[in-house]
Amino acid sequence: MTQTCTITMTVNGEIVSQQVPTRMNLVDFLRNEVGLTGSHVGCEHGVCGACTIEVDGVAVRGCLLLAVQADQASVTTIEGLANNPTGRALQNAFQKHNALQCGFCTPGMLASAVEYVEGGGSPERTAIREHISGNYCRCTGYQSIVDAIADVLENASS
């Protein structure tokens, strides 16, 4: 129950080394121990997508990974997203299209969008909608989010 491990990971380019309870999940570690509160906890069972972050280049659920599983990994959170040109472009497009209301889903939504854009995703709206279907947004109805992602893809190709 109180077993701990020492882990070391790179978070947004900075090395973090700390002793953590083995049962602590990665998003709780990032939020409560590292102080990066941009990643949000919405369901704690891998469904809502609010805690989506990038671990070793792959978008994952921060609530389904234990912090100890990310030992030696490289992690990018919303706070580090602006260092990446795709991340910055998406942040700007989300602002322009008002692709957020309360903003709680936004960090995870952006992480999924970065994965889609960098993975060569199509600007076709149905394909975008399919890709972000693992990220729940209660406020927008999704249309403006699709607009924002399509905008980035169309600008990249033009």
Binding site: L36, T37, G38, E79, L81, Q95, F104, T106
Partner: peptide
């Protein structure tokens, strides 16, 4: 006009209750 808050929230700079320690 664009929301000033959107800039903050897209950069992970929101201040929700659970962020408070």
């Amino acid at each position: 006009v664009e929301r000033a808050d959107a800039k903050r929230l897209t950069q992970g700079r929101g201040q929700y209750v659970d962020d408070l320690q």
